[in-house]
């Protein structure tokens, strides 16, 4: 079955990536800056996306992102190998992000502002997808940080519910429930104009 084959390929790719990560981490423990750079460059886009979705404040994202990845360099031995390195990094990012959110109470900058108006596309081309994106972004913004995190980890990072539960330190059923509520909200918000599509 297509789904089974896809899952198989995903699994093989994930295992290879996890092995690469461990090799790089071993080099980081020997203070190899190039290995740190390699891991940084691999995880920076993924973590940035996750944190931007979650925090929606670029300056905060930058701070949490660097603090998260510097744990790799400063305390590589704190990774005990009980999970994948990627899970460990997302867990640190999640904890630091929630801590940062708790101490923040300022207006949210719009991390998607640049994407809303693209000079490369004609008004005709942009009309449909821009409206859809705008509606989707508004709907996402109305979700709780916990729901946004699950949506991003599931839809974009394609992380399984058990691993998400590890990252967010909550029961698996809570992850499923958060996702359920989030999707329900998104579908409802998009129902008017995009009802046929969604």
């Amino acid at each position: 079955m297509e789904t089974v084959e896809t899952a198989g390929r995903v699994e093989v790719g994930a295992r290879a990536r996890a092995d690469d990560d461990l090799r790089l981490l071993a080099r980081i423990r020997r203070r190899d800056l190039k290995a740190f750079e390699a891991l940084y460059r691999h995880y920076q886009p993924r973590l940035t996306r996750f944190l931007m979705t979650l925090l929606r404040r670029p300056h905060l994202v930058e701070e949490v992102l660097d603090d998260t990845l510097l744990v790799l360099w400063d305390r590589p031995d704190s990774f005990a190998g009980r999970s994948k390195l990627s899970t460990w990094l997302f867990t640190i990012a999640w904890r630091k992000a929630m801590k940062a959110l708790r101490r923040q109470d300022e207006p949210i900058e719009d991390p998607f502002a640049d994407s809303r108006m693209s000079p490369d596309r004609s008004p005709e081309q942009t009309a449909g997808d821009q409206r859809m994106r705008a509606a989707l972004l508004e709907a996402l913004a109305a979700l709780s940080p916990e729901q946004r995190a699950v949506v991003d980890l599931c839809y974009f990072h394609e992380i399984g519910y058990r691993e998400i539960a590890q990252i967010m330190d909550c029961p698996v059923d809570t992850v499923k429930t958060r996702m359920f509520h989030a999707r329900r909200h998104l579908r409802r918000e998009l129902a008017g104009e995009f009802g046929d599509w969604i």
């Binding site: 750079e37 940084y40 460059r41 920076q44 886009p45 940035t48 996306r49 931007m52 979705t53 670029p58 994202v61 930058e62 992102l65 660097d66 990845l69 510097l70 360099w73 991390p111 998607f112 502002a113 640049d114 994407s115 859809m132 994106r133 989707l136 972004l137 996402l140 949506v151 991003d152 599931c154 839809y155 974009f156 999707r183 998104l186 579908r187 599509w197 969604i198």
Partner: peptide
């Protein structure tokens, strides 16, 4: 099918990510 479309839309949302290694190097 609708789930796959929603997933594709959410995953395709561009997020500003102009943070990088060079910046972190300055921290180092």
């Amino acid at each position: 099918e609708r789930e796959r479309r929603l997933k594709a839309q959410v995953a395709g949302l561009p997020v500003r990510a102009d943070l990088g290694w060079e910046k972190l190097q300055r921290r180092l």
